[in-house]
Amino acid sequence: MLELRLVQGNLLKKVLEAVKDLVTDANFDCSSTGFSLQAMDSSHVALVALLLRSEGFEHYRCDRNVSMGMNLNNMAKMLKCAGNDDIVTIKADDGSDTVTFMFESPNQDKIADFEMKLMDIDSEHLGIPEAEYHAIVRMPSSEFARICKDLSSIGDTVVISVTKEGVKFSTRGDIGNANVVCRQNTTVDKPEESTTIEMHEPVSLTFALRYMNSFTKATPLSSTVTISLSSELPVVVEYKIAEMGYIRFYLAPKIED
């Protein structure tokens, strides 16, 4: 028996909007730790890792570890039917081939059940080792989204370079080239508007902008984004989900032929 009650139901709606374009089908794993997902895109270039910790749920019952295969587009369709202020409960019986999403309006005057068919998914699970990153950039998530969107109108790839001058996002295309430099800026009043750069070594890596733009669909989940870079390691683009966990995107760099 599984029963997970999430008062901030719209978090789940935002999570689905953040991942459904990158991954079609995925196994959601439920354990005493929390509700999690790890899935790669079809070309095995990008990976999404989600964790919603059990403590973040108002009620969390998971009698045994369960893996539930879901089509993310179908799940997003069902969650779109929840109101933004609704409480969402995920329910599944042991051995069942369906999962139920229950939506309760805040004043309990409307309760809806949406039952979705589960699917068998042969998912590949990757071990992601703890790594020391050469540079960690923390910046407003909206700023990062703006830069990725702007640069993708010029070119297909972005070079992210971190030096002691700051973090530089560069692209080039048929019509020309573009560079955006963000400097460390901690003097602003609000911490969510600051940019911090923790650099152990200068690093410069090239990535496909198509994926970066897809990751920025998670922007509504967090006011800040953390970009961790190491030469010859996939970049980690992390959006913290307040009091619950995180959504992390890993993207393999482009490498010299």
Binding site: M40, S43, H44, V45, A46, L47, E124, H125, L126, G127, I128, P129, T157, T206, A208, E232, L233, P234, Y250, A252, P253, K254, I255, E256, D257
Partner: peptide, 14 residues
């Protein structure tokens, strides 16, 4: 020319 790397080059299957 740059080639797209794959995650399998960096992470191992578990």
């Amino acid at each position: 020319l740059m080639q797209q790397g794959a995650l399998g080059n960096f992470f191992v299957h578990t």
